[in-house]
Amino acid sequence: MSSKKPLLQARSITRSFGQVQALRGASFDVYEGEIVALIGDNGAGKSTLVKCLSGADRPDGGEVLLEGKPVSITSPTHAQSLGIETVYQDLSLAPDLDPAANLFLGRELLKPGLGWLGVLDNSRMQSEARAAFRELGTELLSFTAPVASLSGGQKQNVAVARSIAWASKVVFMDEPTAALGVVQREKVLDVIRRVRDKGISVVLISHNMPEVIAVADRVEVLRLGQRVARFEAQQSTVEDLVAAMTGALIQEDVA
């Protein structure tokens, strides 16, 4: 994947919460059109790093580069305007609204001519939502029932479809398969591959090593707030990844 161009890069990011140094100069690279897994033990700083890159938190020091240019991502909405979307582990869906309403929440389509009154164009949102799900290769039993009545896998699909519908560059997915059964898990991994094939880079945060090796193109490992190793997923084993996570294997210079 090294022939590809870097899309989103973190350079020596630091972030402290009081006495706790969550990130101690962490670096991270996302290349164009790849699935990169970000792994690390609990407390390694994965979540903090992802928050800094998706606008949910701001680093104390270091640099974030988007397509080679330094950016300061100030909020999740700002990240979204840059083409960066996040699928949160809790999915962040409104359970009382239907899938189409969730897909367009905060970015509703308005009826031409009545937009100044804020009148929603529900039929267009419904049809575009259906198209987005078709593109994802999934279907929903109902587009008009509230999301709360969907199964766990279908809720996941709604959250993923929403992020993909709006992302033009990067999608962060935090443990997207953690709550799913075996069949659903396979489906979500298929979806992740399809997203990559559309040209959108996916950052996968996962604890499941076999899954990481199966779906990711590359793997980056965080330990104690720093990047300690990078792997091509095809040429690595679960043992390599675990060794890097636990400190038995260190590739990079760690200060």
Partner: peptide, 25 residues
């Protein structure tokens, strides 16, 4: 109804989810 149809209805909130804050003062 949803949990009968899907095996794991509500994703448990892990301590390291993006939604949860890391341990901090």
């Amino acid at each position: 109804g949803a949990s009968r149809r899907g095996k794991h209805p509500a994703p448990p909130r892990a301590t390291e989810s993006l939604g949860a804050a890391p341990p901090a003062p």
